[in-house]
């Protein structure tokens, strides 16, 4: 008895042959190395007074790079179907839009209440 919804005959032969090829341990280690370097750079930026004026854009770029590396290689979006990328990227876009909109709306509110 199966949980699923196709005919038994149609399903018996399916295996993971159609699954996309994933990278090996070597690629994963290189990505991890990059993640460590980027994190070290983030912490450095935090402690260097001279970078205070550009701390926001620099940290955002570094975080975005780490985010992209994990999503593309560890979560395999680089190798998987575009459908999965779409399912992730569209909500990400909406989330970023919502975040930016709320920050601007409340900044205006705070400015006019002050």
């Amino acid at each position: 008895m199966s949980e699923a919804t196709q005919t038994a005959g149609a399903i018996a032969t399916h295996d993971h042959a159609d699954q996309p090829h994933h990278p090996g341990a070597g690629i994963y280690l290189i990505v991890a190395l990059f993640l460590c370097v980027l994190t070290a750079m983030e912490i450095t930026v935090f402690y260097v007074p001279a970078l205070k004026t550009v701390i926001v854009p620099v940290l955002l770029v570094l975080a975005a790079a780490k985010f992209a590396l994990i999503a593309m290689f560890f979560m395999h979006l680089k190798y998987d179907s575009w459908t999965l990328s779409g399912i992730f990227i569209f909500p990400l876009f909406i989330a970023a839009f919502m975040l930016a909109s709320l920050m601007m709306l409340f900044a205006y509110l705070a400015h006019h209440l002050a």
Binding site: S2, A4, A10, I11, A12, H14, D18, Q19
Partner: peptide
């Protein structure tokens, strides 16, 4: 491998 939930679908 015998589970159609795991089977590649039309997509």
């Amino acid at each position: 491998s015998h589970d159609p939930m795991a089977a590649p679908s039309s997509g």
